[in-house]
Amino acid sequence: MRNGPPRSAWRARAKTRIAYLEAQLEHESASPCPGERMTLIEGARGHLEKARTAADEEFGWRRPWSGSAAREGVWSNVRSAEVMLLQLASDEEAAGRASEVMALVKKHLDIDDPRRVRLGRRIRYIISGGMTPSDRDLMTRALDASYNALDDELARVRSLSNILWTATFLVLLGVVGLALYGWFSPSSLSLCFTPQNGPEAADRITVVCPTAEHHNLPAGTDASRLAQPRDILTVEIVGLAGAALTVIASLRRIRGTNTPYMLPLASAVLKFPTGALTAFLGLLLIRGAFVPGLSDLDSRAQVLGWAAVFGAAQYLVTRLVDDRAQETLSEVGRPTEAMTDPERAAVKESPAVGEAGPPGSPDGSQDGAGPHEPAGTAEGDGESGTDGAPAHRRSGA
């Protein structure tokens, strides 16, 4: 076990939670432990030991890639231990946790999930002290399902984060490849322009490149042969600087997250190599006269200025990635309004056979009150009307 202060805030928080659950487990171990109860205690203890080991693990040079996996492993074991502790708790303690379980269920399970619907019907009865063995089993399964749903939500965040980091790496490879190709064969990817001179210098031309300007050259000079090895690298650096401005501007939309994956950071880093790539492609399109209204650029400053503009223009594409990242983060802890299928509808519309509602709620409705029907309108309900006769007699039944 590693001694000393935790290396990060989440590890300190995890160790605090583990210590709290270990104390609860010791409290449960003090009571008589039949075979089934001892199995749960040993299982919870095993999960907490795995969580503590993962929190103390040293990854060395693998830490940037393994830290998130360790964090997910720690909290996964902690959540499993909490489910087992709920099974071990007394009826009074379980009833005290009922509201907490219901809050997690509402946060992570679909609105028409059968476990959420049934627990919603029974929650008042459980809190009032009328818990049955089936209620405890329902709470345990609902809590476990909520944690599994949370794991699925985090898996979607992890998947998108991996996609963004992979895309960043591939775009960066492309940018580096272009810079190397331009360095060793500058004339093949020339970004030099030949602006038109006035009538008085019709026999002379000017060649403008990203890193140099050449004046009074003979007409017919091939501009590509004047390209420098560092031209493309210079354009990419300027495009990267333009992308940096959009990253700074997008910080106002980024909010913190408690998920173990730095999704906003991955989305922001993707902008840098993308800006370098769009700067090169934009100037290439101008040189090929594919941009309406733009002719050959007149000076080196214009070339670099347009490189910065095209570098910032990557935001037109990457903002879609930003929106998707924020949407994915917002879905963590927000249940999906799932479509109700027939099986779930049957559970939602009527309580299970033999399931009693809370006191004063014979129909087991979720809000603890039965249907509010006007007196004398329900057939055969035995209520008296204004004349003192039962409703079914007044109707002639």
Rank of each mutant, 00 (worst) to 15 (best):
Q228M: 07
R230Q: 08
I232G: 03
I232L: 14
T234H: 00
V238C: 01
V238S: 03
T246V: 10
T246D: 02
I248E: 06
I248K: 04
S250G: 09
S250L: 05
L251S: 03
R252V: 08
R252Q: 02
R252Y: 01
R252P: 01
G256M: 03
T257R: 01
N258W: 08
Y261I: 02
M262W: 13
L265R: 09
L265Y: 11
A266K: 06
V269D: 10
L270C: 09
L270I: 07
K271Q: 15
K271F: 08
P273D: 09
L277G: 00
L285D: 05
I286A: 04
I286V: 11
G288I: 13
A289R: 10
A289Y: 11
V291P: 06
S295N: 14
D296C: 04
D298H: 15
A301P: 03
Q302S: 14
G305C: 06
W306Y: 10
W306G: 01
A308H: 06
F310Q: 01
A312I: 00
Q314D: 10
Y315N: 10
Y315W: 14
L316C: 01
L316I: 05
V317C: 08
T318D: 11
L320S: 13
L320T: 11
V321T: 05
D323V: 06
E327Y: 08
T328H: 04
T328Y: 06
S330V: 02
S330F: 08
S330W: 08
E331Q: 14
E331T: 05
V332E: 08
T336D: 14
T336Y: 13
D341P: 02
R344L: 08
V347T: 12
K348C: 06
E349R: 13
E349C: 09
G354V: 09
E355Y: 07
E355L: 09
G357I: 01
G357M: 04
G360V: 08
